[in-house]
Nucleic acid binder design. Structure first.
Length: 577
RNA sequence: GCACCCGUAGCUCAGAUGGAUAGAGCGCUGCCCUCCGAAGGCAGAGGCCAGGGGUUCGAAUCCCUUCGGGUGCGCCA
């Protein structure tokens, strides 16, 4: 039960009735009417802006309308009182008998508490990571990987039908370079002294096993054929092994995507060709010249006519080339084909999780989707993740990509654990830069948000264990006994959970879950410590069976919310620290 | 030159799609364990929401503009 959704509907219904009876003019826009938790708990339990947002169109003073509406809302079930405050807020105070219903609902729904049908089964495609298959993932990939994964999970629990996808760039020049690099490792495996890896090729040792595998499979045969002949063989092997490497890296972060989509397959199937033909048919393609970029001219710029997608017609800054000067398709062309493929598979929402350095892509992705989708409506949602700055005891960790000395994703996960990495990557808004300090994230103190939330969960579990040892079980309970303000604060927080999830899903901001969990943990720790001063507030109260059982049931509800939230983030809730 | 992102307490950051007196953590000051896990909690100090205009009942939030920081800008992927 989402009480805010409930009272939002109630307020809208009352306004509709008033329109029907002529108390209000007909046809008022009620879409901006909301019901929310009040900023200040002393204001009540639920607050609505209903009177303020329709007052103008109704030609009434907000406070006057608020008074009338408040009287009507006060008659709603579970409402104790409805007061007008400030410029026209209506603050609802709920009956004491209402809160037990929330807790009962949480216990009844358990692992499913918070789920909703918000997405109405809309098919949503979430593409993330999509790193080139040229080597293992490094820390830079971490954030987008975790963000995309958590976002996908969030959308799932809020009623979207989600496909998690990875686009493999296995068609361009880069994978040929990987193949040539692997070929050297192949020669090396056969005993040739390869000396240093020439610049321009990948020096990484992760290609050594590829060379060995090729040697084992093909012996010396590949040495006797032309590059034209060995390249595809070596390339296929290298890509397959790099993808295995990458999938293992992702698995270490508990990421398992549904679809790994090959760019090459789009060429092989003719979809790239067909896509360009489609665009041409709809008049979105033309032969023309691009103006040179302002500022510094790129190396080797030559003004020439080329085949362009009319992206500017769809809001992009510049038209985009589909063919290279040698007549082959650009990366962009296969990207368009992939978009078309997604739309043909029925996705209504295309979500892209990209690094912040890809900010320039947003407009073209939107342009492509609207050109391909035509009258069908497809939403393009791009989320950019800012970079992660690594620190070790406050000192920045230096990385140089040129020398191949980058910190891999695997190293980070192995050192601090997947749960810590996942939580920390989500403890910032995606477009804000993030500092990741190896020392801090493993610290066992409240400075460390992961720990703080986990600690709350562990404490809950601890009391539940103690209760069980005493032979108590949260079966017979009377939630009306939970009257202390600290308890009510926690209950209210639990009640906010479904609304928070919906808001996070609509805004595509999984970090809201982390912050919510931190707040819930804080409310809980606070309640816990209150039990130190007032023994009657402890969860287990000797000689009072009913209050003990009630609080154990309460703890169970808290535990569900903590663990449900953590699970969406992909963090395992721990029972003991 | 153009486009996008960011600018909130000394520091690191939230701010639920425009709501009431802008919130946390760190740091600082002072408190709380015979007792369910003190690996915690309570209280205090700390703000021109970068600056300036605008929109309206109401702006950190939306629009314009200036300043400051980041990213990107044909035939690479």
């Amino acid at each position: 039960m989402n009480l805010f959704a409930h009272f939002q509907t109630a307020a809208r219904n009352e306004l509709s009735v008033m329109m029907a009876t002529g108390e209000l003019p007909p046809g008022l826009d009620l879409s901006r009417v909301t019901a929310e938790p009040p900023r200040d708990a002393t204001h009540g339990d639920v607050t609505t802006n209903a009177a303020m947002v329709v007052a103008k169109a109704a030609a009434m003073a907000p406070k006057v309308l608020a008074e009338i509406l408040a009287k009507r809302l006060a008659r709603q079930p579970d409402v104790l009182s409805a007061d007008v405050a400030g410029p026209g807020f209506i603050n609802l105070r709920l009956e004491d008998t209402f809160w037990p219903k929330i807790l009962d609902a949480i216990l009844a729904k358990g692992d499913h508490y918070g789920r909703s049908e918000l997405g109405k089964g809309i098919k949503s495609n979430v593409e993330y990571v999509s790193a080139n298959p040229t080597g293992p993932l490094h820390v830079g990939h971490c954030r987008g990987a975790v963000f995309g994964d958590a976002l996908a999970e969030l959308l799932k629990v809020t009623g979207y039908e989600v496909s998690k996808e990875y686009y493999i760039n296995d068609a361009g020049a880069q994978v040929d370079t990987v193949a040539r690099s692997a070929f050297l490792r192949y020669q090396e495996a056969l005993g040739t002294d390869i000396d240093e890896i020439p610049s321009g090729l990948y020096p990484g040792e992760y290609l050594i096993p590829v060379g060995q595998a090729l040697a084992a499979e093909h012996g010396k045969v590949l040495l006797t054929v032309t590059e034209e002949q060995w390249l595809p063989i070596v390339r296929n092997k290298a890509i397959a092994m790099m993808m295995d490497l990458i999938k293992n890296d992702l698995a270490s972060l508990k990421i398992h995507q549904d679809v790994f989509f090959s760019e090459k397959s789009l060429h092989d199937s003719g979809e790239v060709r067909d896509t360009v033909a489609d665009l041409r048919e709809h008049g979105h393609v033309f032969e023309g010249r691009l103006p040179p970029p302002k500022g510094e001219l790129p190396e080797g710029w030559e003004d020439r006519e080329q085949t362009l997608f009319r992206a500017t017609e769809f809001g992009d800054d510049i038209d985009r080339p589909l063919l290279k000067s040698d007549g082959s398709y650009t990366y962009f062309a296969s990207d368009v084909a992939y978009t078309r493929n997604k739309i043909q598979r029925g996705f209504k929402e295309l979500i892209y999780v990209l690094g912040a350095d890809h900010g320039g892509y947003v407009k073209r992705l939107e342009a492509v989707a609207s050109a391909i989708a035509g009258p069908r409506k497809v939403d393009v949602i791009v989320r950019l993740c800012q970079l992660v700055r690594l620190f070790r005891n406050g000192e920045p960790v230096r990385m140089s990509k040129r020398s191949g000395e980058f910190v891999t994703l695997r190293e980070v996960v192995d050192e601090v654990g997947a749960d810590v990495v996942r939580f920390m990557m989500l403890y910032r808004k995606n477009e804000a830069p993030l500092d990741f300090d190896f020392a801090k994230v493993t610290e066992q103190s409240k400075d460390n948000a992961v720990f703080y939330v986990q600690y709350a969960h562990a404490r809950v579990c601890s009391v539940l264990r103690n209760g069980a040892e005493l032979g108590r079980a949260p079966v017979n309970h009377d939630f009306l006994l939970l009257v202390d303000e600290a308890e009510r604060l926690v209950v209210r927080r639990l009640a906010e959970y479904p609304k928070m999830l919906e808001g996070a899903a609509l805004a595509h901001e999984p970090h809201r879950i982390s912050f919510y969990l931190y707040e819930l943990a804080s409310d809980f720790h606070s309640l816990w410590n209150k039990g130190k001063e007032s023994p009657q507030l402890r969860f287990i109260v000797k000689d009072d069976i009913i209050i003990t059982d009630t609080r154990l049931a309460f703890l169970r509800a808290i535990r569900y919310v903590l663990s449900n939230g953590l699970r969406i983030l992909g963090v395992n809730p721990v029972e003991e620290m």
